[in-house]
Design a protein around this nucleic acid. Structure first.
Lengths: 112, 112
DNA sequence: CATATATATTGAAGTTTGTCAATATATAGC
DNA sequence: GCTATATATTGACAAACTTCAATATATATG
């Protein structure tokens, strides 16, 4: 049959299973927040030596919110924290951050 | 002063303003959903000629949910739709999809 | 130990997102 | 126009996310 007899025939199967799709989307969701992007930008700007109050002063959210986003980024391995006395200095893990779009690019390239 | 006198002194200013951060995070949020990633995968797999019922059959969600995500992807310019009789065939815009991680990569590269 | 400061955590409230049943719209064929 | 099929839209509900005030924890200093 040259034409499709009706619809839903090709038995399309997902090459990307649900678990893998969730893995990628979770990784993207980490970066899909303006405050988190700004935090990463600020950390990249001044290599190391950025404390929470520096971030709070530069961002339009309060301290608990900054800490909340820092925790998310830290648990994802995108930033690191080091306490020095009263302050806790955060740093970006540039390689881990750049790996995200690289993996995404590889994923979409393999779709083509 | 060689040492920082207290904290919050460097007057960190965001190179990335709120509007630009939101632009990037909105773009990321588009892809940060497992069903949308699977839809893009399925569309890439069978170039064109994929109707909604094909997608519904391959995915763990019902038809209104498929249509919902298709609308989001279409309004973002990542896919196109073409009606043929009763069916509406969706296609991926591979260039538009790949441009997202490319822009993201460029963004993070410029942070370094 | 008491005080002060920096950051983390908790808990609550508002907002957004995701899903689906029900319904509407569009097209084809009779 | 009537019926059948494919897709879109609406409306409601639940779950997840975001934010902040209040509080807790940790560290430094007197």
């Amino acid at each position: 049959m040259a034409e499709r007899a009706g619809c839903c025939l090709p038995k399309l199967a997902p090459r990307l299973d649900g678990a893998e799709a969730r893995r990628i989307s979770d990784e993207l969701a980490l970066l899909a927040h303006p405050i988190r992007l700004q935090i990463l930008d600020l950390l990249a700007q001044s290599q190391g030596q950025v404390c929470v109050c520096d971030l709070e002063a530069a961002l339009p959210v309060k301290q608990p919110t900054v800490s909340h986003h820092l925790k998310i980024l830290r648990e994802a391995g995108l930033i690191t924290a080091e306490r020095q006395g009263l302050w806790i200095y955060y740093s970006i893990r540039a390689d881990a951050v750049q790996a995200v779009p690289e993996r995404l690019l590889a994923h979409f390239a393999s779709l083509g």
